[in-house]
Computed example of a mutant assay.
Amino acid sequence: MSSRKCMFVGWMGLLGLSLGCATVPGEVRLRADGTPLSEKCPEKSQEVMKYLRLFVGEAAWVQLDANQSRADTITLYDGPIESVLDEDIGTLDAPARLYGRVWTGGAQPVIRYYSAQSMKGGDIIPICAVARLGFGQLRKLPESKPGTAVLASPRAGVYIVNEFR
C-alpha cells in the first residue's frame, strides 16, 4: 500500500473522531467594526492538519469565490464562502473546495476556512486557514456597500493557521 493511501486510511479514522466533537465554526464575537475577534483552531482540526502535512504557514493560491472564478473584480458578501484551491498544499491536492466564512465589516474582508474537500472525491475534512494578500491588495474597493467587499482580484493566498487572529 502506498504511503499516500496509508495516510488517507489514517486520516479517515481521525476524521471520524473529529466529527463527533465538532463545534459551530464561524460563530465568533465581533468587534465594533464588524470584524471577528480571535478564535482558536479546534484541537481535532489541528490533529487532522498535522496528519495531512498541512503545517502552519504553508500557503497556496485560491480562487476566493467558486462562483466568480477568473473575474476581473468580485463581490464577497458577509456569510458562508466556497473557494477553490489552485495549488496543492500539504497532501491536499488541487483542485479542492475550501469552505468558510467572510466578514466584510473592516477595511478588508476577513476570510476564515474551516473545512476542505477534494474535488477528486472524499469526505470534508476540518482545517484552519485564512485568505490574505500582502501590501493591502485585499482591501475593499470604494464601491463596496455595507455587507459587501468588492475586490480587484478573484485570487488570494490561503495560509494554514493554528489560531484565527
Rank of each mutant, 00 (worst) to 15 (best):
M7K: 14
F8N: 14
F8M: 14
G10E: 15
W11E: 15
M12S: 14
G13L: 15
G13Q: 14
L14P: 04
G16Q: 14
G16S: 11
S18R: 05
S18H: 08
A22W: 11
A22E: 14
V24M: 13
V24I: 13
P25H: 10
P25Y: 06
G26H: 05
V28I: 14
R29M: 10
R29L: 12
R29Y: 13
L30Y: 06
R31W: 13
D33R: 05
D33C: 13
T35Q: 05
T35L: 10
P36E: 09
L37M: 07
L37G: 04
S38E: 11
S38T: 01
S38I: 00
S38F: 09
E39I: 01
E39Y: 05
C41H: 00
C41S: 03
P42F: 04
E43P: 03
S45D: 03
Q46T: 05
Q46L: 15
E47R: 11
V48L: 10
K50M: 09
Y51K: 08
Y51N: 11
Y51S: 04
L52V: 08
L52R: 06
L54M: 11
L54R: 06
F55T: 06
G57C: 07
A59T: 15
A59D: 11
W61C: 13
Q63H: 13
L64W: 09
D65I: 09
D65R: 06
A66Q: 13
N67Q: 08
Q68C: 07
S69E: 14
S69H: 04
S69Y: 04
R70Q: 14
A71H: 14
D72E: 13
T73L: 06
T73W: 06
T73S: 06
I74S: 02
I74D: 03
I74A: 01
I74M: 07
T75P: 02
T75R: 02
L76R: 08
D78S: 13
G79N: 01
G79K: 05
P80R: 05
E82R: 05
E82C: 10
S83Y: 01
S83T: 04
V84Q: 03
V84S: 00
L85P: 04
D86C: 02
D86A: 05
E87Y: 03
I89K: 01
I89F: 05
G90E: 02
G90M: 02
T91P: 03
D93M: 15
A94L: 00
P95C: 00
P95H: 07
P95V: 01
P95W: 02
A96W: 00
A96G: 01
A96Y: 01
L98S: 00
